[in-house]
Simulated assay, not measured.
Amino acid sequence: MKSEQIKPLKIGELTARLPIIQGGMGVGVSLSSLAGAVAAAGGIGVISTAQIGFYRPDFEKNPLEANLKAVKEQIILAKEKAGDGVIGVNIMAATRNYKAYVMAAVRAGVDVIISGAGLPKNLPEYIRGSAVKIAPMVSSEKAAKVICRLWDRNHHCAPDMVVVEGPLAGGHLGFSEKELSPFMENNSNDISQMMADYDEEIRRIIRVCREYGEKYEKEIPVVVAGGIDTPEKTEHALSLGASGIQASTPFVATEECDAHSNFKEAYIRAKSDDVVILKSPVGMPGRGIKNAFLEKVARGERGKIHCRQCLENCNPATIPYCITDALIRAVKGDVENGLIFCGANVDKIQKISTVREVIGNILGKENI
């Protein structure tokens, strides 16, 4: 795409040189190495706080304490790598002890907090008095209206940025199984229509943000996520009125990504028919790579579950598997017995590259 179309991503007084955010991927896929490299290259690097302390020796005995220590460790390390780049964290609103994670990130000096997987109703309260920017993640105009109204009424503020995660994204998805049925049935015509319809949804979300931005005399940039991996797709997102894009899957198969090499190779080997819509233990649909683990889950096989208090509304007595265990096994390299979340276009990844190469492939090489 043309260089004049590439403008910095401004979030209040915070500025990233390039309009690209690397999405937060847990457990342990996007930590300080990946996030720091993306920020140093001019984008916004994002650390996922989901069970972030899994690598620490105290994780098994006290997962919360280990996770909060790791939040601080990883933000500090990422900022050292980033120079004057922008570092964010992704904290799921469904996280147990959500406030504690937010406060740990604020104390560690993070620049922006992105929060989805539920509505972060009280996030403005938790960061009050700090310079941290806050960005809810939504998938619909309805969700955007709800969170903006809640923050307006209860906290007298509006988001600093909004991330719109579309149906091509990886991991947990903000859509019902019915809405995702075209992907389950691999119906290309219905998928194309859904994506065309979703363009209008994005425009509606942008209008909501513009309305609340005018009320609070600020610009609320909207960043679009899900399946954006070429300059043409970036250009399309910007043409809808977005201020930038978020990408996750393309950054996994990079030298800088924090995941085990086996995890990266699983992305490179994946074909389009290996990508499935699955149901996570907490009931949300997700997208991942088909493997022996998911086949066992489909057969109803249930292993031993040791709860580490990761998500609200998760009952260890009834869940089919522990999502923490499954994600940790995968990120550590046991890709046949773990859960490998991915985006819809994982089959496009052919080799290990670098963060700068990925950004060039998404924004156009002349723009980095």
Rank of each mutant, 00 (worst) to 15 (best):
Thr354Ile: 12
Asn361Met: 00
Ile147Lys: 06
Ile319Asn: 04
Asp334Ala: 07
Tyr98Glu: 09
Cys322Trp: 12
Glu214Asn: 03
Cys322Ala: 12
Arg210Phe: 04
Asn154Glu: 14
Glu185Asp: 12
Glu125Asp: 14
Asn315Thr: 14
Pro120His: 14
Val110Leu: 08
Ile245Gly: 01
Ile328Gly: 10
Lys348Asp: 08
Tyr321Lys: 09
Ile220Trp: 13
Gly88Ser: 13
Ala225Leu: 06
Asp84Tyr: 07
Pro19Asp: 02
Thr95Pro: 07
Ala131Asn: 12
Ala266Thr: 05
Gly286Phe: 11
Asn189Trp: 11
Leu9Met: 09
Arg128Ile: 07
Glu357Leu: 02
Met92Phe: 07
Gly53Ile: 02
Gly364Asp: 01
Ser32Arg: 13
Glu80Gln: 14
Val110His: 03
Lys99Met: 03
Ile21Arg: 11
His156Arg: 01
Asn345Leu: 15
Val252Ala: 12
Lys365Asp: 07
Val224Ser: 04
Asp273Gln: 08
Pro281Phe: 03
Val46Thr: 14
Ser272Tyr: 04
Pro221Val: 04
Asp58Lys: 07
Ile245Arg: 04
Glu73Arg: 06
Tyr198Cys: 03
Met161Val: 06
Ile87Gln: 01
Leu363Pro: 03
Gly303Tyr: 02
Lys348Ser: 06
Ile305Phe: 15
Lys7Trp: 01
Glu13His: 07
Asp274Arg: 05
Lys279Leu: 15
Pro167Met: 14
Thr234Trp: 10
Val46Glu: 01
Ile113Ala: 08
Ile113Cys: 04
Leu68Phe: 09
Ala196Phe: 03
Glu265Ile: 00
Gly226Pro: 12
Glu366Tyr: 00
Lys61Ile: 05
Glu179Gln: 15
Ser3Ala: 09
Ile114Ala: 13
Met1Leu: 11
Ile328Leu: 09
Lys99Ala: 15
Ile52Arg: 11
Asp58Gly: 01
His172Pro: 00
Ser115Pro: 04
Ala100Phe: 10
Ala242Cys: 00
Leu9Gly: 03
Ile362Leu: 00
Ser181Asn: 03
Gly283Gln: 10
Met184Leu: 15
Val38Lys: 02
Ile44Arg: 02
Gly283Asp: 14
Val335Thr: 14
Leu180Asn: 10
Glu80Ile: 00
Glu65Pro: 02
Lys81Met: 03
Ile87Thr: 12
Gly226Arg: 10
Ile277Glu: 10
Lys81Glu: 04
Phe263Ile: 12
Ser181Trp: 11
Ala135Thr: 02
Tyr126Leu: 14
Gly12Phe: 11
Ile352Val: 12
Ile362Phe: 00
Leu77Val: 08
Gly85Ile: 00
Gly227Phe: 08
Ile328Thr: 13
Gly118Pro: 05
Met137Phe: 13
Leu294Lys: 08
Glu80Pro: 00
Pro124Glu: 04
Ser130His: 13
